[in-house]
């Protein structure tokens, strides 16, 4: 269980997160939705210690991650597929995956990991020697997700995995997230596509300019009028 308490993040003088609490229970999909600039990415980045926390704590099963270096948080089994893909464009697809498993010492496990990712994303297998920078946007997104899977993370955090993808590919990505969930993975999902995210989520949080305004089961939030008005637009029936 990942526990975020009273998380504050400031950029310069401006506060982007003003004390948020999240609980991500094992084997759940938890989603964090909110408008542009609400602070979703900042939350994930603060958990990974890519940005400084002004206040607050992050705990994983009673282990305090608050002040650990990013690389040590990864070693605890927490992986983030960052917003905007961020594949290593100068490395091949396979090298990107190998680096995803940088903290995995057992080379047999790395091989199995690559095999599993290729099973999930056959497109990547065909292109294993291609430079990641020359992949299409959708393929890069698959690679970013696959790369985060390489440590078989205890908690997988995905920052807008469907961003910029064609509708069919968006469905594919959500299918894969559902499949990962079915296999017992714990997932913290940040999505623009609030409807789809809430449909598959066990639990959801709604973030507005750095503050949590609503939380509840995925289905519940889907029915919530405020959520429907603010994030689902016409999609609400």
């Amino acid at each position: 269980m990942l526990l975020v308490e009273n998380l504050h993040v400031n950029y310069g003088g401006i506060s982007a997160l003003r004390g948020i609490d999240l609980t991500i229970k094992d084997n759940q999909i938890v989603t964090l939705i909110g408008a542009n600039g609400a602070g979703k990415s900042s939350t994930l980045r603060a958990i990974m210690n890519l940005v400084k926390k002004a206040e607050g704590t992050v705990k994983y099963n009673d282990e305090d991650l608050t002040n650990l270096a990013t690389m040590d948080i990864v070693k605890k089994g927490i992986a983030l597929s960052p917003e905007g893909r961020k594949v290593f464009s100068n490395l091949s697809v396979e090298e990107n995956l190998i680096l995803g498993a940088y903290t995995v010492k057992d080379s047999q496990l790395v091989k199995e990991g690559i095999y599993k990712v290729y099973e999930l994303f056959p497109r990547l297998k065909e292109r294993s020697w291609q430079q990641a920078g020359t992949l299409s946007g959708g393929e890069q997104q698959m690679l970013a997700v696959g790369r985060a899977l390489m440590i078989s993370p205890k908690i997988l955090m995905l920052d807008e995995p469907s961003l910029g993808l064609a509708p069919l590919l968006v469905n594919d990505i959500f299918d894969i997230i559902t499949e990962l969930h079915r296999q017992g993975n714990t997932i913290l999902l940040v999505e623009q596509n609030a409807k789809k995210a809430l449909e598959i989520a066990d639990y959801g949080y709604v973030l507005e300019t750095g503050t949590l305004v609503l939380e509840g089961g995925g289905k519940e939030l889907l029915q919530d009028q405020r959520v429907q008005e603010a994030y689902l637009g016409e999609a609400a029936k």
């Binding site: 990974m48 890519l50 270096a69 990013t70 690389m71 990864v74 070693k75 992986a79 983030l80 960052p82 961020k86 290593f88 464009s89 100068n90 490395l91 090298e95 190998i98 680096l99 995803g100 940088y102 903290t103 790369r147 440590i151």
Partner: peptide
């Protein structure tokens, strides 16, 4: 792997650290 990490670092420190690279 260390060589790959070097090449990754040349591109992007932050993402490299997300791989657990020191």
């Amino acid at each position: 792997k260390t060589g790959m990490a070097m090449r990754a670092l040349a591109k992007d420190f932050e993402t490299a650290s997300l791989m657990g690279i020191n």
